[in-house]
């Protein structure tokens, strides 16, 4: 049993590393594993995922920046805005509590998934055009 659990742990880790490095939200994958399969509390799962993602992001960043895929002039101002948001978000998570947080997390996954699935092709092409 312990061995099987270990295999799942590795699978979840590798899968979320892959998806995370692609910039499509690997965090979701590890939290899904931790809460659905490993029985970890929602807040702790979120904390584990945040810590987990730091080394993954460093590795991915090195590879992506070598390929010159990173648009730093867009990233820098967004980092500043993001840090403000983090402080508010982490504080709100404390107030909300794990059960409600789990529901919000599920709803967020479904919302993002549906949006991705039904994104119109026309929109994507116009984005590509305007970026030239």
């Amino acid at each position: 049993m312990v061995q099987i659990a270990g295999v799942y742990m590795w699978l979840a880790g590798i899968l979320s590393g892959i998806i995370g490095a692609m910039g499509i939200g690997g965090g979701g994958v590890l939290i899904i594993y931790l809460t659905l399969m490993a029985g970890v509390d929602q807040m702790t799962a979120q904390g584990i995922n945040l810590l987990f993602f730091i080394p993954c992001a460093v590795i991915a960043l090195v590879i992506h920046s070598r390929k010159k895929l990173i648009v730093w002039r867009l990233a820098f101002p967004m980092i500043l805005g993001g840090l403000v948001g983090v402080a508010v978000g982490a504080y709100s998570a404390q107030l909300i509590g794990p059960n409600m947080l789990g529901k919000i997390f599920s709803a967020f996954l479904i919302f993002i998934g549906l949006r991705q699935l039904f994104a119109r092709k026309k929109d994507r092409e116009s984005i590509k055009k305007s970026s030239r």
Partner: peptide, 16 residues
């Protein structure tokens, strides 16, 4: 990006 940070802090994922 403020919202990105908010989601990251609130849900521990998904900001990306």
């Amino acid at each position: 990006s403020v919202l990105v940070g908010f989601i990251n802090g609130l849900l521990g994922a998904g900001g990306g």
